[in-house]
Write a protein that binds this DNA or RNA. Structure first.
Lengths: 221, 221
DNA sequence: GATTTAATTAACCAACTGGTCAGTTGTTTG
DNA sequence: CAAACAACTGACCAGTTGGTTAATTAAATC
């Protein structure tokens, strides 16, 4: 005879509750990673009891997987269209980067989750979320551009990693950037994100393009 | 009358034990962050008992602080010399980047610790370890280069962040890169680190330099 | 070589954490 | 409207975790 009456109990809505838990999980996992995130905190943040997590997801780890998948699904879907082997490499590169940054703007926790997954969890779900495909798409574009002499003679794989680094780091550092930068603007506000995208695209394209080619694309300083 | 005899007890050496604990802490914190790192694991890795941690450092958090300081001290020391206001911006930029990557080669856990500190711990020790100074040094160099028309018209602060991203991301992603790259070389082996440094310098300098200037420096593709 | 000092250990503890479950109650169905 | 269903809760549990402490003993001191 353990449990008694119980509170009014929020409106019963399977989909809504599941979504609330998942959203809360996303935030907590992005902030603390799988190991350090607390199920109780996730429950409180989503406004339900801990039991719901296990009712809907079975375990902390399964919830983590679900959160990962939800966050990275939109990214994965969009990679493919930039892999077209006959597109202009510079345009394709700008396209991927802008798309990645665009999607990340709506999921600012994604880079942090990627970091946690790589460092802390040793990439157990790395293939599962299909992230390697981003490297492959980038490396292919770079390789094609290099052969066409549009891009400089950089190593495609190293450069692909460097590009992903530029795309991810800003969001991870954002929390602290505000106190370092002059002006004190919030790095995650819309105007700053827009500026970051333009700056990143310009930096990346100039970084890879051959000198006589650098006036070719649309990126603005 | 709780404790009994006790094992032979390793050779008693204050400095050596302290150092062993600190080294183990560095690895564990770099892999799991402050929250998820376990004191028992740190103790086992350093070959002593958990009590030693509290004997020498007082608490998990103080140990974390000590580990942070030890890792970032060499970086901080070397920033200043590149801040000279009359040096050539391109050379200064290459100098800072190479120095940062050089030091990081010896402390591969540094980027991961920085990441954990920023994301998980919300940068409580961010100012303490003096990391903002790296951004300031970079931004100053970029600003000078821009005014001298050696660098393109990029925003210095955004670009400083992007440069730090390039310097850090490789080390954080290294664990998983091996299975993604063709050839399967260990990204942390000496030759790869050397290559990464060259690639990063080339990418970064081309990313910021004005077009007619890009043959000016020593970076190699 | 006896005394003092402090490095080291094993056992211990209170608080916490992932996970379970009996029971409650809003909702749906026949 | 009664019965079946399932969303939801709160108490509970076993294992873990940061931290403490009395006892032990290798060295330093005299």
């Amino acid at each position: 005879m353990r449990p008694r009456p119980g509170k009014p109990a929020r409106t019963r809505d399977r989909a809504a509750t599941r979504a609330a838990v998942l959203a809360a999980a996303e935030e907590e996992f992005a902030r603390h990673g799988l190991e350090a995130a607390r199920t109780e905190d996730i429950a409180q943040r989503s406004g339900v009891t801990k039991g719901m997590i296990y009712h809907y997801f079975g375990s902390k780890e399964k919830l983590y997987e679900a959160a990962l998948e939800q966050v990275f699904a939109p990214l994965l879907l969009s990679f493919q269209q930039f892999a077209a082997p006959h597109s202009d490499p510079a345009q394709a590169l700008e396209g991927v980067v802008r798309r990645v940054l665009e999607i990340t703007s709506d999921q600012p926790g994604a880079p942090a989750m990627l970091f946690f997954e790589t460092i802390q969890n040793r990439g157990a779900y790395y293939e599962k979320i299909g992230f390697p495909s981003l490297y492959h798409v980038l490396a292919n574009i770079l390789e094609r551009g290099r052969k066409q002499k549009i891009f400089r003679a950089l190593d495609s794989w190293h450069t692909a990693v460097n590009i992903v680094g530029v795309c991810c780091f800003y969001y991870c550092a954002a929390q602290r950037l505000q106190s370092v930068w002059p002006g004190g603007k919030n790095p995650l506000q819309r105007s700053m994100l827009k500026q970051h995208a333009d700056q990143a695209v310009s930096f990346i394209l100039s970084g890879v393009q051959a000198e006589h080619m650098s006036a070719n694309t649309s990126h603005k300083g």
